[in-house]
Design a protein around this nucleic acid. Structure first.
Lengths: 247, 247
DNA sequence: CCAAAAGTGTTGGTCGTACACCCATGC
DNA sequence: GCATGGGTGTACGACCAACACTTTTGG
């Protein structure tokens, strides 16, 4: 459909920065482009916006295609409009940041998103290293289009948001409950440095327990070693799925 | 040029939320649309993005047309893509937030931006009231397109940014120097409530004096009543004009 | 001298950080 | 008992809001 683009119009696309976390590692969904332009380079999942879709809808449809679900945290990240970002023609991209709990991602990626890899993201202050499943590090030139810039923008965004929003909880599955150290592991993976467990716990409880969104359950975690952790629950009154531009 | 739009493509426009401050009041540049659609309703300045322009460039060109300058603080606000936001056809809008010092705005608006009004914005916790020069309050239905939503989004954004960025200083002219109470007046106008002068001063100095971006000059203000204020200077190392998507 | 605005000092509470210490489990 | 991870207590410093107080000007 879009192998060749007309020269007289601007095309609008959406690109998804899909993040998840597993084993203390932040992960990012990328694929090698199978065709030109940028054949063989790493790219975010993307899609042209149809005439009868808003960008949000388009992004949700792509998410549905890839992962078979749309009940995920999603927020608009930034709109990239450089003239030469796509050699085929004039294409602007509205990028969205999506957070997927690992337990949902793991089965979903096998079924639907063939050709995609969950690459490792190693962050830190002044550091961003992305490596594929074979441990090979990617440079900016290994990315298609301006996707490296989109990734950097998104990682920075989510790092900033950890401090004053509960976005970290979007990495977890509600129904079963979770321990606070799991949440801490997620925060550490995103920030790239360790946090003090006791202070982290207090911070979370103070920020979110009073409003009732975070509450302890009766259950405790089953572990091999150490004291079992109390399990918590996240109750999202309002805005369960994705955010508006406010916040 | 764009009175009628084709039905088979998506058009890309930029809209500008141009803010300034005077006499303890936040002000916003709006005009009544002279033609359909939404004839007579209030609208932000906007422009279709040309094939050879990035959205940033397009916004800068519009700013140049209107105010004759492009050395202003500008940041991308949000991209609005609802299907029916423009009855002429499919138009998405990338909104930009622009901050203009009053001393530049005052002469510029007379020369260039005919037909525009600097409307008053009254803010507060859970409050947003916009009134035209005759003091008439605008409702959501008085705005064209989704521009009321854009305005709300922008006001919320700048309110949030006051806390952790020096965006308030963008409302002031560098060369002459300014007193900290002028800065405070700007913050109060944006937030919609009063701040403690002594605490405000300490906050500003702690945040920005150490890095050298805010420094006291030798001069003092000339006032009618009261003790003259020390004048300060803003030295913007890096990013004088407009920001990237980072931060 | 008085009013007005600039600017400093003080105080009490809150919050973040570091770290010592206790608790509950598997082995 | 001991190692391991969960969870609490505490002490210190930074920070913030409130407000009393001093300083410098115009009238």
């Amino acid at each position: 459909m879009h192998d060749t683009l007309g020269k007289e119009q601007i095309y609008v696309a959406v690109d998804l920065l899909i993040l998840t976390e597993h084993a203390a590692r932040l992960k990012l969904l990328l694929s090698r482009r199978p065709q030109e332009p940028f054949s063989g380079r790493w790219a975010l999942p993307g899609r042209f916006v149809g005439m009868d879709e808003s960008a949000e809808t388009s992004a949700q449809l792509l998410l549905m295609e890839m992962l078979g679900t749309q009940k995920l945290y999603m927020e608009q990240l930034y709109t990239f409009t450089d003239i030469h970002r796509d050699p085929r023609g004039r294409v602007i991209s509205i990028a969205y940041l999506v957070v997927v709990p690992w337990k949902e991602m793991d089965p979903l990626i096998r079924e639907h998103a063939e050709g995609y890899q969950l690459c490792d993201v190693e962050t830190g202050r002044e550091l961003l290293r992305i490596t594929d499943l074979d441990g090979r590090e990617m440079q900016e030139a290994d990315f298609a289009f301006d996707h490296e810039r989109i990734v950097r923008t998104g990682i920075q965004r989510i790092q900033g948001k950890l401090n004053y929003t509960p976005i970290g909880f979007a990495f977890l599955n509600d129904p079963e409950g979770f321990s606070l150290s799991e949440v801490q592991e997620i925060h550490e993976a995103i920030l790239g440095y360790a946090l003090d467990p006791s202070n982290f716990r207090r911070q979370m409880l103070k920020q979110y327990e009073e409003s009732g969104t975070l509450s302890q359950t009766e259950k405790t975690e089953i572990r091999r070693r150490g004291r079992p952790a109390a399990l918590y629950q996240w109750k999202d009154r309002r805005q369960t799925q994705w955010q508006t531009e406010n916040s």
